[in-house]
Design a binder for these strands. Structure first.
Lengths: 192, 192
DNA sequence: CGATTGTCTGGACAGCGGTCCAGGATGTCG
DNA sequence: CGACATCCTGGACCGCTGTCCAGACAATCG
């Protein structure tokens, strides 16, 4: 079994609203790739989406909320992937490798989401839990049924730490793949 | 050997300037404890320090810079502590336990520094490296001379991840102590 | 077709972040 | 004591954030 992150960002929206949200999210991602997360403002996203700022704010509580939403969608694109590999170590490595490879393809998003998730908006808080849960799910899926919870937590923390360091610019998301291979090996040594 | 973080925040300041900086940092910590890192503004810190906002900004490049500076000082208070314990695992646990205990005593500072270090100000970048280096030093000191670099990195990443989760409010800094004991045990199993 | 429902718009608003500068205060020399 | 260097001040400034509201607009239903 794998994880389950729905791609639909909201419930209870009619077609027109869903369309508006969609346009905002697409514009948000474009704007993010174009100018980076520091220069991006909700108003420029609104403009790019062809929507007034007031409208943007009715669907996006904040810049952080936008980033969290985009990242969750990013994860959802993957939700069905099954970890591959002979043993638990290899399977874990396939998960981290896959994630870092994808992150390397969207570094602005990765850089944006880490600070965003530290926000205190309630909307961010909700998404944060889903995002964190998604990581845990993937690691648990890689480790199999009787996974030691302490091992899952260790891997999760190490991965979070790597994201943090990536967000700080201390390593690229490409390097992260290699380093996490070593880290997973260290963790699994004696725990497989 | 242990780590070396100097408590002096700046060089090239005369007595008067040093005094001003000191007042700002003290006021910053008070303000942080009083209202939390979200409500704190550089202007309120300046007021509390009995200094004009313009002056505050000549010594503090940004709010993030203030938090990073305060956190570095917080670490410096400890810089001379030697890890205690029979083996490497116990010594590592004594380090994480000690850090989390101290963080639990200053949760607002801990919550403030994580997002702050993700900033891009050059002043923050400098301090970030020193702070990161300080963690690594402590873990290396706990592990002893011939420490496996991969193990050091794994512990560092896991600890960073724990800080991140603490910053998100997913666990308290008190819980962190217990969880990191388990995490260190997992990592060291097979690596001691 | 007209009326109702609900979305979107334009624009104003207050507060914060960070920068800048002319001039006032302070301290230190000759 | 006077002159000079240095630090600090007050206040203006711009852009961003997030909120609010009255009214324009579109879609749907009777």
């Amino acid at each position: 079994m794998s994880s389950q992150v729905s791609a639909q960002p909201r419930q209870g929206l009619n077609a027109r609203q869903a369309e508006t949200v969609e346009r905002l999210l697409v514009a948000g991602l474009e704007e993010l790739r174009a100018v980076g997360h520091e220069a991006l403002t909700v108003r420029t996203v609104a403009t790019r989406a062809g929507v007034s700022p007031a409208t943007a704010y009715t669907y996006l509580a904040s810049k952080n909320h936008l980033f969290a939403e985009l990242f969750l969608r990013f994860l959802a694109e993957d939700a069905d992937r099954e970890p591959a590999g002979a043993g638990p170590t290899e399977r874990l490595q396939s998960v981290t490798r896959h994630l870092t490879t994808r992150l390397a393809g969207a570094p602005e998003l990765a850089a944006a989401v880490t600070p965003a998730l530290l926000g205190t908006d309630p909307d961010v808080a909700r998404l944060r839990l889903r995002i964190g849960g998604e990581f845990v799910n993937r690691f648990r899926a890689a480790l199999g049924e009787g996974a030691n919870p302490d091992v899952v937590e260790t891997v999760t923390l190490a991965f979070s730490g790597a994201l943090l360091q990536g967000g700080m610019g201390l390593m690229t998301y490409t390097e992260m793949g290699d380093r996490l291979d070593a880290v997973v090996a260290v963790i699994m040594k004696g725990n497989d």
